Simulated scan of single mutants.
Amino acid sequence: MCGNNMSVPLLADAVTVSGAERETAAVIFLHGLGDTGHSWADALSSIRLPYVKYICPHAPRIPVTLNMKMVMPSWFDLMGLSPDAPEDEAGIKKAAENIKAIIEHEIKNGIPAKRIVLGGFSQGGALSLYTALTSQHQLAGIVALSCWLPLHKAFPQAASNGVNKDIAILQCHGEMDPMIPVRFGALTAEKLKSVVAPSKVQFRTYPGVMHSSCPQEMMAVKEFIEKLLPRI
């Protein structure tokens, strides 16, 4: 572990895809339940921009109630996947603090908050939404794939003083998702429009796609990142 990452536990072994030239922006991307940062580092490498640093941390391994208490990489405990399932409030807030520590670290290293996009898939997308909307920093945008907004009943009040009320959100969802039905994605998009300016929320769905990503979705993510993080 290199010295300056010691105070940011998730950064110590995060997968980082460095830019091919001077890095003036960062994308922090959070994987889904049971996965690691490696799979998304690979996916993001295929759409990378040379001046952007991609950081894909690994979730800690914890017992997950939804999966019979099996220990696996998970950002927080999951009890159920329906909008009214009980939630691990303490775990979600702690996870968000850990991601905020990564954001702080990048800002200290010279990448301004407005040049940072936070994103994730499934549980990681859920955490990226919660973290960005409760952040004290004005971030560039959020990429929320196949996910939901955790602790949704706490919003819009939980959004920190509206710092990110103008944040751009790209939300994508497979129309055949058996884990997190597309209808939950649509409900989430509606909820987000009560937290940020409605025109800032894009909700795109992909026919035939299950709980996964597809090339068209990755191209939409690339265009979104390119638009928010243009070359300086």
Results as ranks from 00 to 15, higher is better:
154 A>V: 03
138 Q>N: 14
131 T>F: 10
148 W>S: 03
134 T>M: 06
138 Q>W: 03
135 S>T: 11
156 P>K: 10
148 W>G: 00
149 L>G: 06
136 Q>C: 03
145 L>R: 02
142 I>G: 08
145 L>K: 02
130 Y>P: 10
160 S>M: 10
156 P>R: 11
149 L>P: 00
148 W>T: 03
153 K>A: 12
141 G>L: 05
159 A>C: 13
132 A>E: 01
131 T>R: 12
156 P>V: 08
133 L>D: 01
137 H>C: 03
154 A>D: 12
139 L>G: 02
162 G>S: 11
152 H>W: 14
131 T>E: 08
143 V>Q: 01
162 G>I: 14
148 W>Y: 15
152 H>F: 10
143 V>E: 02
160 S>L: 14
159 A>S: 15
136 Q>N: 13
135 S>D: 05
142 I>N: 06
141 G>F: 09
148 W>H: 02
150 P>W: 06
139 L>V: 08
140 A>D: 07
154 A>I: 00
136 Q>T: 14
161 N>W: 04
137 H>P: 01
158 A>F: 04
141 G>E: 09
137 H>T: 02
141 G>P: 04
156 P>Q: 08
153 K>V: 04
135 S>K: 06
146 S>G: 14
152 H>A: 15
154 A>M: 10
144 A>F: 09
155 F>E: 00
141 G>R: 02
138 Q>P: 01
145 L>W: 01
144 A>E: 04
156 P>N: 10
133 L>T: 00
142 I>T: 05
148 W>R: 01
160 S>T: 14
150 P>Q: 09
144 A>H: 10
162 G>Y: 13
162 G>K: 09
133 L>F: 02
151 L>Q: 06
138 Q>V: 10
146 S>K: 05
160 S>E: 08
149 L>V: 09
134 T>H: 07
135 S>R: 07
130 Y>R: 04
141 G>T: 07
152 H>N: 10
159 A>E: 04
130 Y>W: 12
142 I>D: 04
137 H>W: 13
153 K>G: 03
145 L>Y: 02
135 S>N: 07
148 W>L: 04
137 H>E: 15
150 P>D: 12
151 L>V: 10
149 L>A: 12
147 C>A: 12
130 Y>V: 07
144 A>Y: 07
148 W>P: 00
157 Q>R: 14
147 C>M: 09
148 W>N: 00
130 Y>E: 05
160 S>V: 05
139 L>H: 05
156 P>Y: 09
150 P>L: 04
152 H>G: 13
155 F>M: 00
146 S>Q: 07
144 A>M: 06
160 S>G: 00
132 A>V: 01
148 W>F: 15
131 T>M: 11
144 A>N: 07
148 W>I: 00
151 L>I: 10
146 S>V: 06
144 A>W: 08
134 T>R: 04
134 T>E: 07
141 G>I: 10
153 K>R: 13
139 L>D: 11
139 L>S: 03
133 L>M: 05
151 L>S: 05
146 S>W: 09
140 A>P: 15
142 I>Q: 03
140 A>I: 05
150 P>F: 07
162 G>L: 14
161 N>Y: 07
142 I>P: 03
157 Q>A: 15
136 Q>G: 03
150 P>C: 06
146 S>R: 06
142 I>W: 03
159 A>K: 06
154 A>T: 14
139 L>P: 02
152 H>V: 03
162 G>D: 13
135 S>V: 05
141 G>S: 11
136 Q>Y: 04
